[in-house]
Nucleic acid binder design. Structure first.
Lengths: 359, 359
DNA sequence: GCAAAAGCTGAAAACGATTTCCGACAGCTT
DNA sequence: AAGCTGTCGGAAATCGTTTTCAGCTTTTGC
């Protein structure tokens, strides 16, 4: 219906065979200039666009990539997606996005859907750190895949782009300790979720560096769900003594924690220092502005896209399979003054209201 | 490569012809139980999944829909998308998302891309109120389309789901006026952008209702770009006398305005009342919480999906072509106290810190 | 008990492109 | 002038399905 004009119409219009039309349009060698121009003219006049399905069926490839996310309703993911999608569509690929709705058990189903559509490549940033089935299925699939801020697999066709969560988290914790904080709480996502794990490891390492004990009651892991994060934060913040600093690993958890702080009448920066992971509008615009670990989300997306493009071009051998991108600690007022210290003695001179970027 | 097992393999395994396999798998009438079960067993054993491309080519439909947005990196859009996408994939449709990057001139190109992929349906929520070319192209395409919170067209295959921006905006302005505000500023997106226009019309109407004059210097339109919104807000807030209330029509504009307020040292709720459109994390969690016009974004997405599904089922005649969904005004502290009134006399008893939902 | 109808299945024709195969023709060389 | 080489373009095979057609077997109706 929609696609009325076929290659046959063009052939008839140009008075040549369909094979010639195909060759002319696809820049094959040994096509005379005269024929080529005649075909071009006919194609242009009829506004011919080769049928995607027939093309793909014959060629065995779809020029489309699948993007699996846990949810797209998350500013971090959607920014990454936007950048990746732009880079991919610039190279002629269309992107079909599927969401597993943060349910690990749906991951395989989503991947099957994409595989059935014969996507040429995959970018996976499913929220659930797909325990095993999904990872194994990914290997069997044999489709070039980029894991986005997720654990890589040993598969030859599976690549990864990751953020260096650790260095900035160590820096953040060290900064808090330098300020005088001793009771530093940590709320993360699921414990087996790659970014959470990396951040938590760094948190532990930083405490160890400073010879501070790890306090289990100050460490919480929660699911990706504001309500759950709120509940955990509420429990944590009702324990006494109140920790002097709180690190939240993820923007949904940040939302839950802010809600809990608000309900308990605690003021960020005055009653408790706050460090967030991922610098979003909320951290920047909140009063007081919230110290955050920032990463270049667009770069993350574009890098994933580029890596995938290379991965789809069959020369996998000499590609570096894992790329790690830097993060930056942005200091803001939420860690400037704190209960633990006299208000007149901010920790360091290098902090400014708008946030100084270290690293 | 990827798709190794074809219908022929299944046919061979089950010792039947390919036609029978197809019929058995697609629940055709007049297929014996025995044959069906044999085919099922074979298909299951071989893990057969019909090749999407061949299927689509033959059937003339792709069971996929295109979703055009101006940007997905916007919490409102991404939430709507998520809901729509979920509803569509429940019915077996895959969704390919393309972003025109807020550039109206790219709209047609994006639509062409989707049309070439022979999507069965379209949902369009491009940020640019596509002047004419895109709308006309949409008509020519002949693909069932749902405009999402955009102006409808008269085309038979073009439907629309819209939010009732007007009633809540009138209510909001009336509320401000009741509080005592007389100088109510308005910053909107592009003037020809559907939601902006609706909101602005309601703003005008509410002023008229109260016999208040319209003050051109308090009305600004800006592009969808935080920097531009920031600049407009800065100019507006530097004019004297300072308006006692500010309405921002859109979440990007909200971010720019908050930045400007912050840079000018103005405190929301104390120095100026603030009303936002779209209730996002930021409005809820900001201190003080910001009064906002809320709409059920998931419902918006699901409704668009349902409407499209009906639109794709060929019986267009008796479908209502435009659906309008309600909005709600959520009162919060940002409009509770204001310069214009003595602090001891909050406007109404029905406001609570957490926001009371009217309407 | 027999014609007609209905049920079931295999063979083959689509769908619209790409790609292989092969013959025609021009331009050379011997 | 015959034979060879290389370019060009038409015909046909192919991709993996669905769907039509036709043939065979069974049931049904009278």
């Amino acid at each position: 219906m929609t696609q009325k004009v076929t290659i046959h119409d063009v052939a008839q219009q140009a008075q040549v065979s369909v094979g010639s039309v195909s060759r002319a349009l696809n820049n094959y060698p040994h096509v005379s200039e005269e024929l080529k121009s005649r075909v071009m003219a006919a194609a242009l006049e009829l506004d011919y666009q080769p049928a995607f399905l027939a093309h793909g069926l014959r060629r065995g490839q779809t020029n489309s990539v699948g993007f699996l996310v846990g949810t797209i309703a998350n500013p971090v993911i959607s920014t990454i997606f936007e950048a990746a999608s732009e880079a991919l569509s610039a190279k002629g690929y269309a992107v079909t996005l599927v969401s597993s709705r943060n349910q690990a058990e749906l991951d395989v189903a989503c991947l099957r859907l994409l595989a059935r559509r014969q996507v040429s490549g995959l970018i996976v940033s499913s929220a659930a750190e797909s325990p095993e089935p999904a990872r194994r299925y990914l290997g069997e699939l044999g489709i070039p895949t980029v894991m986005l801020d997720r654990e890589a697999t040993s598969d030859e066709l599976v690549f990864a782009v990751q953020s260096d969560h650790e260095s900035s988290m160590r820096e953040a914790v060290a900064h808090l300790i330098r300020r005088g904080d001793r009771e530093i709480a940590f709320i993360g996502g699921p414990e087996d979720f790659y970014p959470t794990r990396q951040r938590f490891l760094a948190y532990q390492a930083a405490l160890l560096d400073a010879d501070l004990p790890q306090r289990p009651e100050l460490i919480r892991f929660t699911s990706f769900n504001e309500r759950a994060a709120y509940a955990e934060a509420l429990l944590l913040l009702q324990s006494r003594p109140l920790p002097s600093a709180l690190i939240v690993a993820g923007n949904i958890i940040l939302a839950g924690a802010l809600m809990a702080l608000q309900d308990l009448g605690l003021v960020v920066g005055r009653d408790i220092a706050l460090v967030a992971c991922d610098d979003i509008n909320l951290t920047r615009l909140y009063r007081p502005p919230i110290t955050a670990i920032r990463r270049d989300l667009k770069l993350l997306g574009v890098t994933a896209a580029r890596l995938l493009l290379r991965g789809m071009q069959a020369e996998h051998s000499e590609i570096e399979r894992i790329i790690k991108l830097p993060t930056k600690l942005v200091l803001r007022e939420s860690t400037q003054y704190a209960r633990a210290l006299p208000r007149s003695a901010p920790a360091a001179g290098k902090e400014r209201a708008n946030g100084t970027i270290l690293n």
